[in-house]
Write a protein that binds this DNA or RNA. Structure first.
Length: 568
RNA sequence: UGGGGCGUCGCCAAGCGGCAAGGCAACGGGUUUUGAUCCCGUCAUUCGGAGGUUCGAAUCCUCCCGCCCCAGCCA
């Protein structure tokens, strides 16, 4: 994997966790190389942009201190988890450019240890098997403002508890019939401490352990211990787990764990116009509102990849965001800015005509093909590509108008009787236009000005502007998928009404009669280009091939013109 | 009306008692064979509110207001 470029941030984003680790190192609590973090996804869906931030924080911190970061699947709930997600998540982390320490870990690899620790708690009088139903337990738990009351099973003997737990493990009881709970404090103002559940019965096959278990540990009874087993020093999670920290610490204090990790919470990343909830994303997929988890409109890492958002752009974006304790909503414009910034520098240029209008250059002979050469990038040294120029060309319909009243400043494109430069080629003049049955321009007849390739036109000829073009005979027809934001509302999650009410009905448009210059057809799948004057596009990683080119629009060029009054 | 977290420019945010960084967006202007990029400039007399301490407060104290999270045998 190539080394990530240095972030573009001028000042390093603040990160209070980094400061804490640095202080720990300086205080001699641990060596910098001993810093261990982990990224602990539950394999119950595909990773999204919010996870990307967490990945960058965890792997980034480990990198900065020369420590290590583990990838660990928090697979404690077989009813929601699948191997498909495990595979996709590993793929995503690798694609983002990170390498986890050693083998992939699974919480389920530690199930034997967790079971032994549960027995330990029972022996210490710190846990008991409870027969209350879920509804009853909820009642007993009390309300936020009123204390709960003890379960009638709270004082069972250690022997009985041990026996019951063993029988739960052997599948003697139905799902929901019994749970193992910690004996903490039913009056705690922190609901998480009102005798939380340690084990519940789930007679389901697990993607990693098969049918070995029919009881599964809860998140709370697993997470801190997983960290301790792996020697994680700084366990970083999102804000909603702050209330769980006392419980996290409680288990680590009660159990003979091999190390003492500390939990720190930061605000998760939210983007406007974007939904980041596995449940909602899954719904979009399951109900067919998008074409799968890797639909380019999805904020999943798989989707962003297919869209052409580069791993480097995603990393730069995440690294530029502060790690703080507030959870705000970042504007997608900021993300898009990071994408354009990266693609502008790294994407070779090419020309593609999305809405073709035929142009016949009357003073260029029919059978002639002039091989022009054009730089692949205006600033970076990426070499040149061959650009064939012929008598018949395509330009974009938007680059020609029959309205002759527009000033040169307002319309820097082609107008009858005036000149325009064809990018990387000649200056041409439009002479006349033929219309189709609807009265729309069908064919434009033009003439080129000799000796204007790489040269200024003679005195007196002032092109209105520069437009892009493709040879009609040497160019290739291509399919281009144009995407816009999936949601029209800034906060589609929020407020009343259904998520679907906020879907943009025009978020996907497929253009099948686009024309691209020949060099673009040869693009490798998943390579990005700037189609000049249009935007950034990526050759689809699955559907593109030289014989049948398919590009996905990543994002348009920044446009400071068309939105303005008087613009078009 | 319990507990936890947070409130500084439209958005994300620095700041930790000495007189409001930066990024995104926006708006002017310059360069340009991409109306892109790049470059230059403008953009909070004010820090949720009200009191108080101090020569001096966004930073300390008090009270108030607002937003988010917690009552899954989800993570």
């Amino acid at each position: 994997m190539s080394k990530p470029d240095t972030p573009v941030t001028k000042t390093q984003a603040t990160n209070f966790i980094r400061d804490i680790i640095r202080a720990d190192v300086e205080a001699g609590k641990l060596a910098a190389e001993a810093v261990v973090t982990r990224f602990p996804p539950e394999p119950n869906g595909y990773l999204h942009i919010g996870h990307a931030k967490s990945i960058c924080v965890n792997f980034g911190l480990a990198q900065q201190f020369g420590g290590q970061c583990n990838l660990r699947f928090d697979d404690t709930n077989p009813s929601k988890e699948e191997q498909e997600y495990v595979d996709a998540i590993m793929d995503d982390v690798r694609w983002l450019g990170f390498t986890w320490a050693g083998e992939v870990r699974y919480a389920s690899d530690y199930f034997d240890q967790f079971y032994a620790w549960a027995q330990h708690l029972i022996r210490e009088g710190r846990a008991y098997v409870c027969d209350l139903s879920a509804e009853q337990a909820s009642e007993y738990r009390g309300w936020a403002t009123s204390p709960g009351k003890p379960s009638p099973y709270r004082e069972r003997s250690a022997e009985e508890n041990l026996d019951l737990l063993e029988r739960m493990k052997h599948g003697e009881f139905d799902e929901g019939a019994k749970v193992l709970r910690a004996k903490i404090d039913m009056a705690s103002p922190n609901m998480n401490l009102r005798d939380p559940i340690l084990y519940r019965i789930r007679k389901q096959s697990h993607h990693h352990t098969g049918d070995t278990w029919c009881i599964y540990p809860s998140y709370d009874f697993a997470h801190g211990q997983e960290d301790a087993i792996e020697g994680v020093t700084h366990s970083i999670c999102t804000l909603e787990f702050a209330d769980h920290r006392p419980l996290y610490d409680w288990f680590l204090e009660q159990l003979p764990v091999p190390s003492r990790p500390r939990q720190y919470e930061f605000g998760r990343l939210n983007l406007d116009y974007t939904v980041t909830s596995k449940r909602k994303l899954k719904r979009l997929v399951d109900e067919g509102h998008v074409d799968g988890w890797d639909d380019p409109r999805m904020p999943t890492i798989h989707g962003m990849r297919r869209r052409g958002f580069t791993a480097r752009a995603i990393r730069n974006f995440c690294d530029a965001l502060p790690v703080a304790k507030s959870d705000g909503v970042v504007s997608v414009a900021q993300f898009e800015s990071a994408v354009r910034d990266d693609l502008d520098r790294h994407a070779p240029r090419g020309m593609a005509v999305l809405n073709p209008l035929k142009v016949i250059v009357e003073n260029f002979s029919e059978d002639r093909v002039e091989s022009l050469s054009a730089a692949r990038h205006p600033k970076e040294d990426m070499g040149e590509r061959i650009l064939p120029f012929t008598r018949e060309l395509y330009i974009d319909t938007a680059d020609f108008t029959e309205d002759t009243t527009l000033s040169r400043k307002k319309f820097k494109r082609l107008v009858l009787g005036d000149y325009v430069r064809l990018r990387g080629a000649y200056v041409i003049k439009a002479n006349r236009v033929e219309h189709d049955v609807n009265g729309s321009p069908a064919v434009l007849y033009a003439e080129l000005v000799e000796n204007t390739v790489g040269e200024d036109p003679p005195e007196g000829i002032k092109p209105r502007g520069v437009i892009h073009w493709v040879s009609a005979t040497e160019g290739r027809q291509a399919t281009i998928r144009v995407y816009e934001r999936l949601f029209i509302t800034a906060s589609p999650d929020k407020g009343e009404g259904d998520l679907l009410d906020h879907i943009n009905p025009e978020s996907k448009r497929i253009i099948t009669n686009a024309w691209i210059e020949p060099a673009l057809a040869e693009a490798n799948p998943e390579s990005s280009f700037q189609f000049e004057r249009e935007g950034y596009f990526v050759a689809d990683r699955f559907d593109h091939c030289a014989e049948s080119p398919v590009f996905n629009m990543t994002i348009g060029l920044r446009d400071t013109f068309s939105e303005k009054p008087g613009g078009q």
